[in-house]
Design a protein around this nucleic acid. Structure first.
Lengths: 339, 339
DNA sequence: TTGAGTGTTTGAGACGATTCAAAATAATCT
DNA sequence: AGATTATTTTGAATCGTCTCAAACACTCAA
C-alpha cells in the first residue's frame, strides 16, 4: 500500500505541511503559484487525503448512520434514499445498517456507529423502550427516531400509524366487510401496535357489528405473510375473515400469494389491504390497496432534523414531525360483488 | 459532547494508558485485579472507544464499501445481505453505496471510500472501462468486482450472463416463439451486453427462423420497463413480438404492468421472462419466469475474496469466480395455447 | 544473596491531518 | 528609505489510541 501523506506532498512541492493543508481546505488564502505547485505534487504522487486523520483532529465526522428494521423491505430503502439525497447536498454520507428486527444486531450496529463517532444516527428502533439508545443519546450522539414514537429525548419523524390503521379499517367496513383480520407482527413494534389500534378504533366506531381478528407473526416478512395466509386459507369458509389488513406490504404480498395457491379469489373471497405502498404493491398479482406513507420525505426530514441539531446544539429544540398517511385503493379491496 | 478518552479512564483506574489499551485489546495479559478496576472505570465514565483514532494508529479499517448499481433493486439488496453476513463474522462492517447507474455518483462514492481508507471495495461498476477504478486499485485499495467482468487486475465474482441469456432465449424458442424482443439497457453495462449476446446466440442457433428485436432503455428500472411495454402495446399486433426477455426483473415487472393496463394477456398475447429472480417476481400479477442468480452467494463470495486478499496480499492471486444461472419457469412464459 | 525466569505495567513515540500564533515576505504609503 | 499594513508561509502542538522496548515485581533455584 503506497499511501502518500501530506508530508510527502509538502516535500515534493517544497512547502510546509501547513500550506498543503491550506491548499486542501482554504485554497483561496494561498498564492496561486504555490497552490499550483501543491496541486501538481498531489497529482504526481496520487495523494488522497486521509479522512480518518482529519476526522480525528477535527473531531467531527461526515457520516450519518441509518439503522432500519429490514433492508429487504423497499419501504426502508426509499427512506434511505430520501436521507441520502439530503446528505449528498451536505457532502456527508449515509451508512445503512440493518437490524433485521433483532435487538442484538441493532445494539451492535449502534455500538459500531458510536465508536466511529458518526455525526448522528437515524433509527427505526426494534423496541419501543431502549435504555441502550438513551444512554447513547446521553453520551452525546444526536439521534433522530424514524417512523417511530417520540420520547421527547430526541427528534422524531413519523407517520400517524393510528390514523393509517383507522383509514384502512374504515375503508374495509365501508366496503361491507364484517369480519376483518389484522395480520400483524410483534406488538412491541410501535408501528404494528398503532396500526392495530387504528383499525380497532374503526371497528369500534362501526357499532359492534364488525368483528376483528388479530394475528401476530414474529416478523413482518413476505414469508410470515404467506404463512398466515396459509392458515387462513385452511379455515372453513364461515370462520374465515372476508378481509385482511396487513401490517405492511411485504406481509400483504405473502398473504396474497397464499390466497392464489389455495384458489381463493382476491378481492371476491377475501379482500386485502397493505401498508406502505411500496412500488411493488402496484405490480402484485392483484394490485394491492395500501396505506401510503411519504417514504422519501420521511428520510429527508429525519436527516434535516439531525443536521439542524448538529449545526447548533445549544439552540436546538427537539421536534416531533408527524405526517399523514393516505389510502391508495386498488383492486385487492375493490367493491365486493355480493355486497 | 462528553466523550471520555482512554486517558481519563486510566486516571480513574490509577493505571497507565497503555494498560487500559491492553485491557481493551488483549485482556488476557493484564492481571484480573487491574482488569476489573479498568472495566469499572470504563463503565463509570461511559467510555466508548474511539475507532477513528484506533484506525489512524493501526492503519487498517474494519469497514468494506459495497457500491451497487441500484439499491432499489432487491437483487442488490440480497447481494449486500450476503456480504454483510460474512462481514459480521469478521467483525467488520459493510457500507452500502448507491451509484444509481451514474458514473459521477460512483466516482464520488469511490473517492469517499478511499479517503476513509476502507479495508476494500466491492463494486458493480457502471461502466466496463473505468480508469478511475484502476487508479484506485493501483494506489492500493483492494477491489472485488461483483457481477461483472474480470479484468485480471482484481478478483471478481460473476454469474455467466451469456449463458443466462442463452437459457432464456432457448426456453422461449422452445415454447414456439419466433419474434422475441430483448428489453435491455445501456450496452455499456456488461451484464446487459452479455445477456443480449446470450439470447442472440440462442436465436442464431435456431436456424434463422427466429427474429430478435432489441430495445435499449437508459436505466434498468420498473419505470423504463413500463415505458417500453407501453410502446410495445401500442404496436399493431402483427408487428408486436410474442415474447419479451427483460434485462432484469424490475424491467420485467414494469413491462408486465404495461401489458395489464393495455389489456394484453400474459403469456397468451405476449410471454415475459425476467432476470435475477428477485422475491417479488413470484408475487407479480402474473408470476414471472426468471433467470435465477445466486444472489447472497455472490455477495458472500465477493467479500470472502476480498478478505482473503487483505489477509495475505503477497500470497494472494486474483481469481475469477463464475456461477451458473438457472431458469425458473412460472406462468409468464407458460406454454402458449395456440402453439 | 544473586540471578534467571515469569508475569505486569509503564510511558514515550508514532499515525496523518488541522490549527493558529508567529515569522517571513511583499505591497503600499509618507 | 523607512514605516506600516497586507499577504503568505511556517512549524509546533493537538486529536485518541496503539505499540513496544524497558522497567518493575515476584517466585524459585542455586
Amino acid at each position: 500500500m503506497a499511501t502518500r501523506n501530506i508530508k510527502e506532498v509538502a516535500q515534493l512541492a517544497r512547502v510546509s505541511v501547513g500550506t498543503v493543508s491550506n491548499v486542501l481546505n482554504r485554497p483561496e488564502i494561498v498564492s496561486p503559484a504555490t497552490r499550483e505547485r501543491v496541486f501538481e505534487a498531489i497529482k504526481k504522487l496520487g495523494f488522497v487525503r486521509n479522512e480518518v486523520a482529519r476526522h480525528l483532529r477535527v473531531g467531527r465526522s461526515r457520516t450519518v448512520g441509518l439503522v432500519v428494521l429490514d433492508v429487504s423491505n423497499p419501504f426502508f430503502v426509499d427512506v434511505a434514499q430520501g436521507a441520502e439525497s439530503v446528505a449528498d447536498d451536505h457532502d456527508s454520507m449515509v451508512v445503512l445498517c440493518n437490524s433485521a428486527g433483532d435487538p442484538g444486531r441493532e445494539r451492535r450496529h449502534l455500538d459500531q456507529l458510536e465508536q466511529q463517532r458518526v455525526l448522528g444516527i437515524l433509527i427505526t428502533p426494534v423496541e419501543m423502550e431502549s435504555p441502550w439508545l438513551e444512554e447513547l443519546v446521553a453520551r452525546g450522539t444526536p439521534v433522530v427516531l424514524v417512523d417511530s414514537p417520540a420520547t421527547g429525548l430526541q427528534c422524531s419523524v413519523a407517520v400517524d400509524d393510528r390514523l393509517g390503521g383507522q383509514i384502512a379499517g374504515a375503508h374495509l367496513i365501508e366496503r361491507g366487510h364484517r369480519r376483518i383480520m389484522f395480520v400483524g407482527g410483534p406488538p412491541s413494534i410501535k408501528q404494528v401496535a398503532d396500526r392495530h389500534a387504528g383499525v380497532s378504533s374503526a371497528v369500534a366506531a362501526a357499532d359492534g357489528a364488525v368483528e376483528l381478528l388479530t394475528t401476530t407473526a414474529p416478523t413482518l416478512t413476505v414469508g410470515e405473510g404467506r404463512a398466515v395466509g396459509e392458515r387462513v386459507a385452511a379455515l372453513p369458509p364461515e370462520e374465515r375473515p372476508t378481509a385482511a389488513f396487513c401490517a405492511n406490504d411485504m406481509m400483504a404480498l405473502g398473504f396474497l400469494q397464499a390466497m392464489a395457491t389455495h384458489g381463493l379469489r382476491v378481492p371476491e373471497d377475501l379482500a386485502i389491504i397493505g401498508y406502505d405502498d411500496i412500488d411493488f404493491a402496484a405490480a402484485a398479482a392483484v394490485p394491492l390497496s395500501s396505506v401510503r406513507q411519504p417514504r422519501e420525505l420521511l428520510g429527508r426530514t429525519a436527516i434535516d432534523l439531525l443536521l439542524e441539531e448538529v449545526a447548533d446544539p445549544e439552540q436546538h429544540r427537539h421536534r416531533q414531525v408527524i405526517f399523514q398517511p393516505d389510502l391508495v385503493i386498488r383492486e385487492s379491496s375493490a367493491m365486493r360483488r355480493d355486497g
